[in-house]
Design a protein around this nucleic acid. Structure first.
Length: 245
DNA sequence: AACACATTCAACCGCCATGTA
DNA sequence: CTACATGGCGGTTGAATGTGT
């Protein structure tokens, strides 16, 4: 980087239609990549990152704008429950939508929706718990699905205590340590182990039941929980594998 | 009409991973 | 091995816009 001086020369703020046009023409002529060069050669006084972002989020062909459909929202919610704030992965399953758009939509619409929905669920749960208070020890089902993010999610929300939910768990991404090769999204090396952390040590052969069943039609080749049945080890966690088809 | 407050979303920031010299 | 450039990601900010009073 060429120090502060260069930084102050870089234009910031909202993109004007004329700038969009310049960027679009340049990328269509020269192709994507080398964004530092793009900004220098096209005459745009924008940072390379800014150009890349603008192209990726708005100028790229096949970008879908406008309201999210019910199906899209539903998919986002389900995927978020599985993956947490992995916006680029989620967006990858929504043709024409960008990670930024998905993230914004989540933060402004769906997050609230989930919290509201959850509150309702908790209320009805409390009703039920009243009934089942004494006999739910062994038939306890573990609910969860949040990944390692600090933001609340609608699946197993770090904010929530065990009230309302039977057991609170987090799925935490471990360092890649598996020997299994992953073809997921074309990535051949970064297979990820997910660890479900739970404050409780459930009985052996406990079956994890998620709030929603995975909709395979939605997920297509993306991810599949190979199994929901996990061996509970002596430690306070067990493993769930995400695997390609 | 004017103001305050709330909401939305485009853009930026900082960090991390990867590639290359 | 190290340093640097680049790209990608998630979190955050703040201007624009909408809504209520």
């Amino acid at each position: 980087m060429q120090n502060k001086e260069a930084k102050t020369l870089v234009k910031r703020g909202l993109w004007k239609p004329a700038e969009d046009l310049i960027l679009k023409n340049y990328v269509e002529a020269h192709g994507e990549g080398n964004w530092a060069l793009v900004s220098a050669r096209s005459g745009l006084m924008r940072g390379g990152k800014s150009c890349r972002l603008r192209w990726k989020n708005y100028l790229r062909p096949n970008i879908k704008r406008g309201r999210m459909s019910e199906e899209e929202e539903d998919l986002i919610i389900r995927m978020h429950k599985l993956l947490g704030n992995r916006w680029s992965l989620i967006a990858g399953r929504l043709p024409g939508r960008t990670d930024n758009e998905v993230k914004n939509h989540w933060n402004t619409h769906l997050n609230k929706k989930c919290h509201l929905g959850k509150r309702k669920a908790m209320e009805s749960n409390q009703h039920q718990n009243h009934h089942n208070e004494n006999d739910n020890d062994k038939s306890q089902k573990l609910r969860g699905g949040s990944c390692n993010n600090s933001q609340p999610t609608c699946g197993a929300n770090p904010e929530s205590t065990s009230e309302g939910l039977d057991v609170v768990m987090n799925i935490v991404e471990k360092e890649e340590s598996s020997t299994v090769t992953n073809n997921w999204m074309g990535d051949t090396k970064s297979f990820i182990d997910y660890v479900i952390e739970t404050p409780l040590v459930p009985p052996n052969n406990t079956t994890f039941v998620f709030d929603d069943e995975l909709d395979v039609a939605y997920l297509d080749s993306f991810v599949l929980f190979e199994t929901f049945e996990c061996d509970i080890r002596e430690e306070t966690y067990s493993q769930v594998e995400f695997s390609p088809w």
